[in-house]
């Protein structure tokens, strides 16, 4: 299973992982939502954009 944003390999889910849980990608820091535990799958979680003076 890889990060849908940067393709980094992701560690297997912990045994107590549940659907809807948020996990950070270790490489790009994207917030990933667990959309399925079996088979394991994640999707990019909706994010709130920060406005840095834009």
């Amino acid at each position: 299973m890889n990060c849908p944003e940067c393709d980094a390999p992701l560690a297997p889910f912990a045994p107590d992982t549940t659907e809807g849980e948020l996990l950070p990608c270790p490489d790009c820091g994207a917030e990933l939502e667990v959309v399925s535990v079996s088979p394991p799958a994640v999707a990019l979680a909706p994010s709130v954009e920060e406005d840095w003076g834009e």
């Binding site: 944003e5 940067c6 990608c25 790009c28 994207a30 917030e31 920060e50």
Partner: peptide
């Protein structure tokens, strides 16, 4: 180090 993160 590759630094290309989504937030922070």
């Amino acid at each position: 180090r590759i630094v290309h993160e989504k937030g922070g």
